[in-house]
């Protein structure tokens, strides 16, 4: 029965299905690397979804839509940044409040946009390349955002690994007090990281409302932001593993739907738990190996930083 599923199409569709959570997760990764836990991803995603949708509809340009979504996500995340970095509020509580606010706020601004069809996002044109067997239909027939999301992953990876700023960011996440003592601007860096996270979450939301579904309906992210949080952990804060994690999470959903469509009887509800259980397992494995855990998990994650001097 498995044989009736075309693996090429399966991979192609899981790439599309995973892109929203991939974008949100890579943003959250940078935020967490800076030592900040922002549980408001869902809120930022859905505000991005409506902001991007509205922008695309008003301007007729999906590109403007994605830009607007990134800006809106970043703007919303700055509320979080202000509260947690300047006013030193608790990050967990503030993030949850951000989600609550984002869901309500997006529904308010979205009231005029239900039932509207957005301008279509064109596919990338790779010319004859997209006709290459296997690789063409699998990898080279997507819309630009699929590639942009992978480029963002690569950029974040390079940034964290090779640049001085990336090193400082990691240092800030590792020990804000030490970083501060060395003269780094902890708060400024963290605010930037939070804004980047917000922008990426906004893009992820807009991908849902402009490409994947494409329409605007209240509450349309339906928990995608929470999955993005899980992926960051699953990836043990490594950019390329975020890609793998997002494709795995997206893949499990796509695969179970495909299996059903192919007539294979599967226990859907139990299968849906699998990614979370795997994530816990991964967590255990990486933390059991303490040396590697210390390299990846930001030690100051979620802690309040206040420069007392």
């Amino acid at each position: 029965m498995m044989g009736s599923i075309d693996p090429i199409l399966l991979i192609a569709s899981l790439m599309v299905a995973s892109t929203p959570i991939l974008l949100a997760a890579i943003g959250e990764l940078v935020t967490e690397k800076a030592g900040v836990l922002n549980l408001g991803v869902e809120g930022m995603m859905i505000v991005g979804a409506i902001a991007g949708f509205a922008m695309a509809v008003e301007t007729g340009s999906p590109l403007m839509g994605f830009l607007g979504a990134a800006l809106a996500g970043a703007a919303l995340s700055l509320i979080f940044a202000f509260l947690t970095q300047v006013l030193l509020s608790n990050q967990v509580a503030t993030g949850l409040a951000l989600t609550l606010f984002g869901i309500g706020f997006s529904a308010l601004i979205g009231q005029g946009y239900t039932g509207v069809r957005p301008p279509p996002t064109p596919k990338m044109d790779f010319g004859p390349l997209s006709d290459i067997p296997v690789i063409g239909p699998m990898l080279l027939r997507h819309d630009p955002m699929v590639y942009v999301s992978i480029l963002i992953i690569a950029a974040v990876w390079a940034f964290l690994k090779f640049t001085r700023a990336g090193l400082v960011l990691r240092a800030v996440g590792e020990s804000h007090d030490a970083a501060h003592a060395l003269g780094y601007k902890v708060v400024r860096l963290r605010v930037l990281a939070i804004a980047f996270g917000g922008a990426c979450a906004g893009l992820g939301g807009a991908y849902l409302s402009l490409v994947r579904v494409p329409q605007w309906t209240e509450g349309m992210t339906a928990g995608a932001g929470w999955i993005a949080l899980a992926i960051v952990v699953f990836a043990s804060w490594r950019p390329w593993r975020v890609l793998a994690g997002a494709y795995l999470f997206g893949g499990v959903t796509v695969l179970q739907l495909n299996l059903q469509a192919a007539g294979v009887a599967i226990p859907v509800q139990y299968l849906s738990m699998a990614p979370y259980l795997i994530t816990i397992l991964v967590l255990v494995l990486i933390s059991a190996d303490r040396r590697r855990a210390a390299q990846n998990a930001p030690a100051s994650l979620g802690r309040v930083f206040h420069a007392s001097s």
């Binding site: 599923i5 075309d6 569709s13 299905a17 349309m220 739907l257 469509a261």
Partner: peptide, 27 residues
């Protein structure tokens, strides 16, 4: 007839995925 259970009344992304899975099966 191929039936896919989405286990949700409302999750646009998942509904789209389900439709896609069916289409890929030749529906």
């Amino acid at each position: 007839i191929s039936v896919v259970w989405a286990y949700t009344w409302f999750d646009p992304a998942k509904e789209a995925d389900a439709a896609k899975a069916l289409i890929e099966q030749g529906v």
